[in-house]
Simulated assay, not measured.
Amino acid sequence: MTQKIKVWDGAVRFFHWVMVLLVAGLWFSGTEGYIVLHQLMAYSLAALLIARIGWGIWGSQSARFSQFAASPKAAIGYLRNTKPVAGHNPASSYMIFTLLALLMLQIVSGLATFDNSYMNDGPLVALLPGSWVDLASAVHTVNIDIILILVTVHIGFALWHSWRYDNVIKTMITGNAELNSVAQPELRSSWRFFLMLAALLLLMYYWQGRVLLALL
C-alpha cells in the first residue's frame, strides 16, 4: 500500500540545494577570475560541508552515514533490482561519499593554492614549501573538472530514477515521498544543524571572511 512519508529533513534539503548553488558559483567565479567572491563562497561551502558531516553522524536517521553506507555487493544488487527506498539507496551512497570527499579535497587544496595577483593566495601558501603549493594548485585545477563530471552523472541518474521509479528530485525539494511498505525514518529537528552551520560560518568570517569582504 502506497503511503506518503517524510524522508528528508530541512537540514538535508537545505544542504543539497545550497551546495548545488555554491559549486556552480565556485566554478563560475573561478573561471571568470572573481577570486575574492570565489574564496568567500569556498569558505561558505567549507562550513556547509563540515555541518553536513556533523549531521551525518548525529542527525536524522535518513541523514546518517551509518544508515546508507553499503557494501559493493549491496550496491550491485540494488542496481540489478532497483526499487524506491526511504533515503539514499546503496548505489547512490558511493556517489554521495565520493562527492563529499572530492569537495573537501577541493577546499583543502584551495587553502594552499597560489594566486597570480599575490593578494588572494590561500592562507596556507605562506606556510608550505613551494612544491606542496604547486601540487595543491594542480590538484585544485584538475579536481573541479572531476567534480563537475560526477555531478553531471549524478544529475543524469537522478533524472532517470525519477522517470523510471520514484521522483527523487521532487522528494529532495518537498522532503516527502510516496512509497510502498516503507517505515517512516526517524527525523530530528534541523535547528541543531543550522546552529552548527551558523557557528561555522561565524568562525570562517573571523578567520578569513572579514579581510575578503573588505576587498569586494
Rank of each mutant, 00 (worst) to 15 (best):
Y205F: 14
S190N: 04
V168L: 15
A42N: 07
Y165K: 13
W132H: 09
Q3K: 15
L124Q: 02
R210K: 09
E186I: 12
P72Y: 01
V182A: 14
V85Q: 08
L48N: 05
F65V: 13
F28L: 14
S92T: 11
N89A: 05
Q3R: 15
I147N: 07
L215K: 15
L213Y: 02
A183Q: 14
W207P: 00
R52D: 06
N180R: 12
A126W: 01
W17N: 04
M19G: 05
I144N: 01
Q61S: 13
M95R: 00
Y206V: 12
D166Y: 11
N167Y: 05
W27M: 06
Y205L: 15
A51D: 12
A158Q: 10
Y206M: 08
P185V: 03
A24R: 01
D166E: 14
L48M: 01
L216R: 11
E178A: 09
R80T: 03
G87C: 06
L124V: 02
L37F: 09
I149E: 03
A69V: 08
I173Q: 13
N81S: 14
L49M: 12
I173A: 14
L195W: 03
S66F: 02
Q67S: 15
I169G: 12
N176Y: 12
S189H: 15
D9A: 10
S190Q: 03
L202Q: 03
L148W: 04
L150Y: 03
D121R: 09
G56Q: 12
A75E: 07
V142G: 02
V168G: 04
N180H: 11
I53F: 15
W58P: 05
L203K: 01
M204L: 08
M172Q: 07
Q3W: 01
L201D: 11
N120Y: 14
L200V: 03
L37C: 00
V7D: 06
K4V: 13
V142I: 15
A177W: 01
V36A: 10
R64V: 05
I96P: 01
T174S: 15
G110H: 03
S29L: 08
V151N: 01
L202H: 02
V133D: 07
L135T: 12
P185W: 04
L103V: 08
T98Q: 06
M104K: 00
G110L: 11
T113W: 04
K6R: 15
S190A: 14
P90R: 06
A69E: 00
G33W: 11
L200Y: 04
V108E: 02
L79P: 08
R13S: 03
D115F: 11
M119F: 12
W191L: 06
G209K: 03
Y165G: 03
L197H: 04
A70K: 10
W58R: 10
I173N: 12
L150N: 09
E186N: 13
Q208C: 10
E186R: 13
T113H: 06
Y94C: 01
V36K: 07
P72I: 00
A177S: 13
P185R: 08
V142D: 08
L127K: 09
L79R: 04
M196I: 10
N167F: 09
F97A: 08
M196R: 01
D9M: 12
D121N: 15
P90F: 05
D9H: 13
N120L: 15
I50G: 05
M19N: 14
F14Q: 02
M95K: 00
R164F: 10
A136Y: 08
G59I: 03
S162G: 15
W191G: 00
F97Y: 08
F68H: 09
N143H: 01
A126G: 14
W8I: 11
